[in-house]
Design a protein around this nucleic acid. Sequence first.
DNA 1: CAGCTAAGTTAGGCGATCCTAAAATCAAAG
DNA 2: CTTTGATTTTAGGATCGCCTAACTTAGCTG
Lengths: 235, 235
Amino acid sequence: MTGRKRNAAKPAPGGEPLTAPAEDYLKAIYAIELDGVAAATNDIAQRLAIAPASVSGMVQRLADHGLVEYERYRGVRLTDQGRRAALRTLRRHRVIEAYLVRALGYGWDRVHDEAERLEHAASDELIDRMAEVIGEPVTDPHGAPIPTREGKIAETPRWTLADAAVGSTTLVVRVSDEDPGMLRYLDSLGLKPGAEVTLTERAPFDGPLTLAIGQATCRVGSSLAARVLVAPARD
Amino acid sequence: MTGRKRNAAKPAPGGEPLTAPAEDYLKAIYAIELDGVAAATNDIAQRLAIAPASVSGMVQRLADHGLVEYERYRGVRLTDQGRRAALRTLRRHRVIEAYLVRALGYGWDRVHDEAERLEHAASDELIDRMAEVIGEPVTDPHGAPIPTREGKIAETPRWTLADAAVGSTTLVVRVSDEDPGMLRYLDSLGLKPGAEVTLTERAPFDGPLTLAIGQATCRVGSSLAARVLVAPARD
DNA sequence: CAGCTAAGTTAGGCGATCCTAAAATCAAAG
DNA sequence: CTTTGATTTTAGGATCGCCTAACTTAGCTG
C-alpha cells in the first residue's frame, strides 16, 4: 500500500516513470515509424482507438518530456530517449507474452491483452527474470522480435504471404498478434512461425490464395495473408 | 494496444472493474476492519499515505458504487460487495508474492512492491494459473493467508511475540511485510514463518526481548517483536 | 492560385484523484 | 453545558487523459 506514485515500475534507465498511456503512445509511434514515416496524429489516434483531438494534447506532453519531436501539423518522431522507452515497453510486452505461453500454459491467442496490462506494471527485474527462466527468448509467441535489455532489436522483414510469388516456398516468421480469433484460425491452419508454406495459386482480382502447409492445403483471403510475415525458405 | 479501458483486469465476478486507487482503498479499509472497528478517515489516509481530505472524496465514490457504507464523521464499513473486492485484491497480491518467491527466485523482502503494482493488472486467470503452478499456496511468503478464489480467508490470530510470556515457546506464523530492511533483518535472525522461538527474557520498561531461535540467541526491541505474529508451539 | 477536403488543433468539458486551507463536527474534559 | 482539541468535511485548485464541436492549416486540384 505505497500509494502516491506514478504507474510504471522504475525510473526507467534515465528519467521519471512514464504513465501507462504515455507508454502506449510511444509504442504506437514506434510502430508507425517502422514504416519510415513520421507518425501522423490520425494514425496514432486510430491505433490507440482514441479521438485525434486527444492525441494533440498527449503528443505535446510527450514533447515536453523530450520523448518526441513535434512540429504542429507535421506529425511526431521519437527522440532517442523516446525510442528507448518504446523499446523498453516492447520488450516488456513480448517477454511477458513469451513467459505466459512457455511458463504458464497460455494459448498464443490470449496473451496479448494480459501483456498489454502487465507491461505497465512489471519492473525491469521481473521482466529479466522471466526472460531468464524461459531461456532468453528472441521472439514472442507470434514471432515478433524481443528487444534486448540494452534496447537493440532485430526488426522483422516486411514481406508477407500476400507478396509471395506463386510457386514459391516461404518460412512463416511472424503473424499479427492482436486478434485472438484470427490467431486461433491461423493455428488451426498450421500457419505459425516456423512453418513452411508454399503458395500454389493466387486467384485473380485480389482473390484467395491457395497454400500448401506440410501435407495440408488451404485457401485464405489476401487480407489474412497480408498479416502473415514470411522470409524465403532456406532451400 | 487496446487502450480505452479502465485499469483492473476483468469485470470482477459481478460489477465493473475498479480503479487501482479504489482497490487500494478497499484493501486498506479491510485491514483496518480486522481490528473490529469501522475504518476512520484518518486511518485510511495514513495507510495510503494521502491527505485525509482526499479520503472523504474517494469514500463517497466507493459508497456510491455500493462498496462501503458511509456515514459522515462515522467512518466506513465494507459492504459484502466491498469485502469481496478487497479479498479478491488481497488474493491477487499474495498469490503474486508467493509466485515471485517460489517460481522466480525473488527474496521475500522484494516482493511487496512488485505485487502492489501487478495486483491491479493481472487477470483472475493469471492469478489462478500462478497459484496452480506453485501448488495452491495457503499463505504468502510472509505467512499472510491467501483468500480462496471464492473469497474465504483464514485470518491469522493476532498474538505477537511482544505478547508472549517469558519462558514460552511459540511458532512464528507471520511477519509484517512492507519494510524490506526489516524483512532482511528478520531473515538474518531466522525469524520467519515456521520458526520456533523461545522468549527467554524481557527487559523491563518495554525493553528488549531475548529470544532463542534454534541454536542462536538474539535480542530484539519490542516494536520489532510486535511485528512478528506467533501461535503457541505444538509442544 | 483559389477553393476544397482531409488532417490537425484549439476550446470547452468531464471524471478521477490528489492537494491545501478553512470550516464544521464530534467528543472528552472540566 | 461549554470549551477545546482532534477529526472530518467542504471549498477551491491542479493534473492527467479523454471527449465533442468548432476552427485552422496544408496541400492537392482544377
